[in-house]
């Protein structure tokens, strides 16, 4: 029996549907696994490749669900895109920043604190305004501008009431002086296959497409390409969404996404990203 490609999901977003439809057009049968109903027996000697595929695209919308399934599949000898090591770094903003810095990738000035007192020490250095981001999560959720002492105290007080201990790790970043946009790039292997500007909507300062941000084509300069590929390599590589900001001191990478959403990039006329993703998976299957 020939080798196969699988896709693990827990919700079919626009992106998963696009990948599945593209595979149908290519005559490529991919094994779909619904993570919500999985029950994985750790000691099982089953042929998991026959169930999930030899190479699996991890596309869970829930980060922790996806991460743990990836770790399990890897333990059974399955090649997962992206590997759990990459997911672990990209799923945590502290680890991402540390990996980017270690690789010499320019990134916004960042402080990590563990209490209100620590946050104010960071603000003594950064000044107002600054940005507070949760270390897990996506779509700009819980990202807050820290404009002054009073609002900062209120935001920290709210965070302290949340039950998840990860929300009490305070990741404070400089408010980068950027145009009202950032740049989303999509990296597949060793290539940047898409780059688009993301403009924030009138209703929100954040540029996330999930927040209503709109996209436009962005020229891929040498500086952008080199920085983005270096960032992708820094987290371990694979299929990634690397987000950068244009600052007065050049391009800064502020995030690397492990389960990249690319509807916005496609809307701006980017290349056929599902085709690129499947091509990358096919290449891994053949190895």
């Amino acid at each position: 029996m020939g080798k196969s490609i699988g896709l693990v999901f827990d919700r079919i977003r626009w992106e998963e549907k696009a990948i599945i439809e593209r595979s149908k057009k290519k005559g490529l049968k991919i094994k779909l696994s619904n993570a919500q109903i999985l029950c994985l027996h750790a000691q099982s000697q089953e042929d998991f490749k026959a169930i999930f595929g030899d190479v699996v695209l991890q596309r869970c919308i829930s980060y922790f669900r996806g991460f743990h399934i990836t770790a399990f599949l890897e333990s059974k000898g399955i090649n997962v895109i992206n590997p759990s090591g990459v997911a672990q770094i990209c799923g945590n903003k502290v680890l991402s920043t540390l990996a980017l810095l270690e690789a010499g990738v320019p990134t916004p000035d960042t402080f990590i604190a563990f209490s209100e007192e620590g946050v104010f020490k960071a603000l003594d250095e950064l000044g107002y305004p600054a940005v507070l981001k949760p270390i897990i999560g996506s779509w700009g959720r819980l990202v807050a501008p820290l404009k002054d002492k009073d609002t900062t105290e209120a935001i920290i007080e709210s965070r302290e009431l949340l039950s998840n201990p990860l929300h009490k790790i305070y990741y404070i970043q400089e408010m980068v002086s950027r145009p009202p946009r950032d740049i989303r790039t999509v990296v597949v292997g060793d290539r940047v296959v898409a780059s688009v500007y993301r403009y924030s909507s009138k209703e929100d300062w954040r540029t996330n497409v999930a927040r209503g941000g709109r996209t436009e084509p962005c020229p891929l300069t040498k500086e952008l390409e080199d920085t983005v590929l270096k960032a992708a390599e820094a987290v371990g590589g694979g299929i990634l969404g690397v987000d950068v900001m244009e600052s007065p001191r050049g391009i800064l990478v502020h995030e690397v996404n492990n389960t990249v959403e690319f509807k916005g990039a496609m809307a701006a006329g980017a290349t056929d990203i599902p085709e690129e993703i499947l091509g990358y998976a096919i290449e891994l299957v053949r190895r």
Binding site: R11, S62, S138, R141
Partner: peptide
């Protein structure tokens, strides 16, 4: 709603999961 089953006879739905704080990219 989330599509829970697709058969030649039709499509079954169930209420979709609530958005989790770890959801996203």
């Amino acid at each position: 709603y989330e599509v829970s089953k697709v058969t030649p006879k039709g499509v079954s739905l169930k209420k979709a999961e609530e958005i989790g704080e770890d959801w996203g990219e």
